[in-house]
């Protein structure tokens, strides 16, 4: 019988200060997330320096709470895991230095984790991953299609050439006068609208799994601008629906093509935009039609959290993938090379 691995994980790559205790990569003993969103709202986006300041304010409290809620003492831990990147560098450094100090104080191995690997493995908190699989990562900073032959094997088969899809959501939200973060608001409005604008779908060249959302974003902005100049009334709900339909069409088409070409039976969708109801519904019906198993994490595991970092760290622990005390944050890490 193998021994349990119990990992304390820390995630501070953007605007959530998070810590979690996860047993064997899937059993969540605690999952504490302190969101800074209320503080960043006034700026209309995440301000890196402000984010870093908030992380220092709460980091030890969040770690303490994660241990307390798990009923765990440091002696019961196997390792400490932390997001190494990608992310806001100043924000990452708070989590990394806290993780290093904690691992040093208790003589625990330190496991560096790729943030996007975390988003993919958020699915493992709910069900086992079945390989080979394709994962679509959609968030404010990422739009990537990743093929996985096995655990910790990541092959990027497509990515955005300009804006991340979540970024496009936030921009569109701003031009139609919705507060930050705009994604959920656009999603909500779209339910009461119709696809009347028929914005362009950017599929790029044949056979490419890359994405581009800047054209769609510009089309929305230009259309609104033209309407306003002519004094025509614009139904916000229709703009939201038309934009969302274009984004969802492209995301689902490319993803389902990849599922077919790579002959996988399991599709994962992860990242903040995986919470989008339009995207979820479309994937649900497409996967049902094509007999593909679909996993989309619960809302709280779509957004940044530390439990997902602990889920990846379990596999890294099995492979002795440890860092020394000179671990530093990196704002970009190639996921194909990180293990």
């Amino acid at each position: 019988m193998t021994q349990d691995t119990v990992i304390l994980s820390i995630e501070t790559s953007c605007d959530e200060t998070a810590a979690s205790v996860v047993r064997n990569g899937s059993e969540i003993l605690s999952n504490v997330v302190v969101s800074q969103i209320e503080s960043h709202k006034r700026f209309g986006g995440v301000v890196p320096e402000v984010a870093s300041r908030h992380h220092v304010e709460t980091i030890t409290l969040v770690i303490e709470q994660a241990l307390e809620e798990a009923g765990m003492t440091p002696e019961g831990l196997s390792a400490v895991a932390v997001t190494e990147g990608p992310g806001l560098i100043g924000a990452l450094l708070v989590g990394i230095n806290a993780a290093k100090a904690f691992s040093f104080a208790h003589d625990l191995p330190l496991i560096p984790v790729h943030h996007i690997a975390g988003h993919i493995y958020a699915n493992q908190l709910e069900e086992e991953l079945e390989f080979p699989l394709v994962a679509l990562i959609v968030s404010g900073g990422h739009t990537e299609l990743i093929y996985m032959e096995d655990h910790l094997s990541f092959e990027v088969i497509g990515e955005t050439r300009d804006d991340a899809v979540g970024e496009a959501y936030d921009k569109v939200a701003r031009v139609i006068g919705l507060p930050y973060p705009g994604g959920p608001h656009v999603d909500r409005l779209s339910r009461e609208g119709a696809d009347t604008f028929d914005f362009p779908r950017s599929y790029l060249e044949q056979g490419s799994y890359d994405f581009s959302f800047s054209g769609l974003k510009s089309a929305v902005i230009n259309t609104l601008h033209n309407h306003r100049q002519k004094g025509l009334e614009v139904k916000k709900e229709d703009v939201a629906k038309s934009f969302q339909e274009s984004a969802v069409d492209v995301l689902t088409k490319k993803t389902m093509d990849a599922v077919e070409e790579y002959e996988v039976k399991h599709l994962l969708v992860a990242g903040g935009v995986a919470a989008n109801s339009g995207l979820r519904q479309r994937f649900e019906s497409l996967c049902r039609e094509n007999d593909v198993k679909l996993s989309i994490p619960k809302l709280k595991f779509c957004t940044d959290n530390a439990a997902m970092i602990g889920a990846v760290a379990h596999h890294l622990y099995q492979k002795d993938h440890f860092a020394s005390l000179d671990l530093n944050g990196r704002n970009f890490i190639d996921i194909e090379l990180f293990v």
Partner: peptide
């Protein structure tokens, strides 16, 4: 330096908490 003082304070807080 904002980043510099954050690193020192984060390390000191976490060590004091852990120990």
């Amino acid at each position: 330096s904002y980043t510099g003082v954050r690193i020192g304070v984060t390390v000191a807080k976490t060590l004091a908490f852990a120990l």
